[in-house]
Design a protein around this nucleic acid. Structure first.
Lengths: 359, 359
DNA sequence: GAAGCCTGATCAAGCGTTTTAGCAACTTCC
DNA sequence: GGAAGTTGCTAAAACGCTTGATCAGGCTTC
């Protein structure tokens, strides 16, 4: 039986199954040094490829051989101890599993972090304040370089107190407090783009099914809709703006009302509403896009790309939000002084608006 | 301008924007000790609530006051250095953003890990072997307690070499290598359950649209289907088993063929196929569940719960997989010797099978 | 041939904890 | 009143690494 290198005494260890493979005690710098017949300082210099250091090729090789033979891996904890700050970036998210959005934020943040040699330390808090505080405390104890505080939908947020003890950037949310860096989707531009897709296809009477729930997205997307119409010289007609709960049932339920409006096209607050609307329209024997064109918002792949017909929509740039958050945290990207940095929402054109004729 | 506590010299620091709030240099044990007029040993004992330690209430209070006043936070890196192993569990995933599944594994793993005082260190590798190796190396350098290696769909996998240097558990995948611990969904039981939903509603002629792609799920779900029929004394009829690509288009495309089979119910390999099938059936003017009952598999919320009618399905227990993986890693749950531990797939009944009469 | 300069390496301090051994003072006990 | 305990606390080593200071020896240079 192999002895446990960790006998620190959690009762867990007692129950641990036999090791799947003999795992050696971790090899230290000192052992490498001894094996190579040099000092630990020398090994350290070789490992870290310090160009300033003067080490002969011969020694360098001896050290490298020893490292390889022993399977040495630096102890990042020890390194961090001396350097004072780790290569961690913390990411606290309020809903990792319940929506596909957080996943993309994580993905973007992780890619960007890795690019700069950082690893992500993730905490899922489900919006629970106490968990949040604990998570941030944990991150602070691990001396993270900074923290990304993210929400699954774009909204205002109160900062948890301990966040201030660290460098931080808000992702997909923002705070009223001055001087907080934040990165959010450009809802207004997104709304404009969504509307423009329809305008481009010649539609003039475009309905908008907005959400009932107050949110930056609700205001922004409506604002964008108005701007797009205005740019085309089409007067805004409030009767074309409906409201419904932003999910499939809401979209489905809005069908009747929509049909009263005599629109040739409709822009839905999100893809889920569009999915419900598809069902409603179909029940009325209407075909998309011939009888009515539809665009959504969010680009939830599993929905938008696979509806019949596939849904034109506008992407929420979650990946980019995560990546931009990391860049901002690392000071690679300037944060505007007062307002959150806005990330472009790209359009994704599919067949729900008709053949892709350009205006 | 506040001086940077981290002047370790990444060029990034130069560009860092002014701090959002004055952040003190981290407070150390020694400072607390000085403030309280005691030794660092005493502070450490108080912080760690060692019951064995004999500290007077008066001293204890002085120390606690100092901790509060100074806003002391232990340096986890230093703690790890002395204890030899961190409170991290690594999780490497091959597709964090592209599917909703990994999110749930993370969620389950994180909850369970937190419960035992561990934090999750996450790496998204998109299946890239090199990234995987790097990620595992990073985790080893941070002295993780162990590593969860997970895939987004249930499959066999080759172990990346460095994984063996750590304690590890495979999640949602398995290896041919003997003695590797793994936790996977119970596909056979899932297939049985899916079929049973339909049997329970009185169906006897049940079609199964299986996937074309080879996978444990393909075999297991078919096996379960057969078992369920057999238990009811219904002879297996191979002509009732179709195959299609496991997505919406596949399901849609299978409609015609399905209708030739004269089945009163159909069990789809996954929810996405069911979604496509819904469209196909509707185009034929058939109604669900009256003309034909449908069940899916996976319980992809955004689809299954919101189709019209909502889809009965079987859950892939991703949350449980993550949680069980952690428990197994910590030795809290026994791993069977030879085969992966199988996690139950619960059924989720909705209206796509008719009113919920019990057999 | 001494002063100075490279070159290639080592020494040793220090990062912030934990933890064991031990010390001083006080109490108890006979 | 001295041995034996008990109580409350501290000293110091150790964890694995980085890094500025230092050193030994050989080579130039005048």
């Amino acid at each position: 039986m192999i002895s446990q290198e960790n006998s620190s005494g959690t009762p867990l260890d007692a129950a641990a199954p036999a090791k799947q493979t003999q795992r050696r005690q971790p090899v230290t710098l000192r052992q490498v040094a001894e094996a190579a017949g040099v000092s630990t300082a020398t090994v350290s210099l070789v490992v870290n490829k310090k160009k300033a250091a003067r080490i002969s090729d011969e020694t360098r090789k001896r050290v490298r051989d020893a490292i390889r033979d022993l399977g040495y891996r630096p102890n990042a904890m020890a390194q961090t101890l001396v350097s004072g700050s780790s290569r961690f970036i913390g990411l606290v998210a309020d809903a990792i599993a319940t929506t596909p959005f957080a996943g993309q934020i994580i993905h973007g943040a992780q890619d960007e972090a890795w690019k700069h040699g950082y690893a992500l330390l993730i905490a899922n808090t489900e919006g629970n304040r106490e968990l949040e505080t604990d998570a941030i405390a944990m991150m602070l104890e691990y001396k993270v370089r900074g923290i990304l505080y993210s929400t699954w939908f774009h909204r205002a947020t109160d900062l948890p107190a301990p966040l201030r003890e660290s460098d931080f950037v808000l992702v997909n949310c923002f705070s009223a407090e001055p001087g907080t860096r934040a990165v959010v989707p450009d809802e207004v531009q997104g709304g404009r783009s969504a509307t423009e897709i329809l305008l481009k296809h010649g539609h003039r009477r475009i309905a908008f099914i907005n959400a009932t729930i107050p949110a930056p997205a609700k205001d922004g997307r409506l604002q964008g809709y108005k701007e797009a119409l205005e740019a085309e010289g089409i007067p805004f007609d409030g009767s074309l703006v409906l409201e419904a709960y932003p999910d499939q049932e809401g979209g489905y339920g809005a069908t009747e009302e929509l049909l009263n409006r005599d629109a040739t096209a409709v822009y839905c607050y999100n893809d889920r509403m569009a999915m419900g609307l598809y069902d409603g329209l179909r029940e009325h024997g209407l075909s998309i896009p011939d009888d009515i064109a539809v665009v959504g918002f969010d680009n939830q792949e599993v929905i938008a790309a696979h509806l019949r017909p596939p849904l034109s929509t506008v992407s929420l740039p979650h990946y980019e939000l995560g990546a931009a958050g990391v860049r901002m945290l690392l000071g690679l990207e300037d944060a505007q002084a007062a307002t959150p940095t806005k990330i472009h929402c790209p359009t994704v054109e599919r067949n729900s608006v008709g053949s892709l004729a350009t205006a």
